[in-house]
Amino acid sequence: MATYGYARVSSEGQDLTLQVESLKEWGCEIVRQEKVSGTSTEGRKELGVLLEFLREGDELVVTRIDRLARSIRDLQNIVYELRVKGVSLKAIEQPIDTSTSAGKAFLDMLGVFAEFESNLRRERQMEGIAKAKARGVYKGRKKTIQPTQVQELRSEGLGATEIAKTLGIGRASVYRVLKESIT
């Protein structure tokens, strides 16, 4: 039986040091870490490697359950995969231990709250963007595509795929520029 840790923060500017230290103090022999959003399991390579590597009798430890998942569906899928493999899950800062009934119940409750918090943050962000747009402060990302270049290449007889390759952009972007030039 081995004890493995998983540490995660959402962005490059955040620091993993406290999580990693806590996990090592807890007795984790190996700590996998990554800087990627927890709203989905997509793109979380370290988590994938860890889940694939864990064996029956092993223990997966996180500092808090929201480090593992921010979606109740993802959390349930991860916990199910761990249970099938015979791996227990523990959270250092929360009374979660999937080897007990109370720990499993508490895990589900915290998962719901983690998803709720994530949804609230997204709503607040969208409200802030809408207010900024109304004031004329937020205009979105600066355009990187020059419509004149697209139109010039089109007038030379190039198709959307060739234009996209030439300019290093997606075909959908080419079609969008061409559509905007018609209207």
Rank of each mutant, 00 (worst) to 15 (best):
S22F: 04
R121N: 13
V84M: 05
V62N: 01
G168P: 13
I129K: 09
R171Q: 14
R70H: 11
R44N: 07
K165C: 03
I92D: 05
E56W: 01
R83N: 02
A164E: 06
R44D: 09
A160M: 15
L120Q: 15
Q94Y: 12
T63N: 12
R55P: 00
L110D: 11
L158G: 02
T3K: 13
T183R: 08
L68F: 08
E162N: 08
E180K: 01
K90T: 06
N77V: 00
S181V: 04
L153C: 06
V49Q: 08
L89M: 00
R124H: 09
Y175N: 05
A164F: 07
E156H: 06
R73V: 14
S155K: 14
Q14R: 07
M126K: 13
R8T: 04
Q76Y: 10
S101Q: 12
Q76C: 09
F113P: 06
A130G: 07
G38S: 01
P147G: 06
A114G: 10
L110I: 15
K35N: 05
L16P: 05
S37E: 12
G168N: 12
R32M: 11
L75T: 03
A102C: 13
V31A: 04
A2C: 11
A91L: 06
V20A: 07
A105K: 10
S181L: 06
Q33N: 08
A130L: 10
V36I: 11
L120H: 13
Q149P: 02
L60Y: 06
G27L: 11
T3W: 00
K45V: 14
E46G: 07
E25C: 05
L178T: 01
L54S: 05
G136N: 10
E115A: 10
M126D: 07
R67G: 05
K24E: 15
Q125A: 12
D66I: 02
V79C: 03
E123D: 10
A114C: 09
R122W: 07
E156P: 01
E52L: 00
R141E: 04
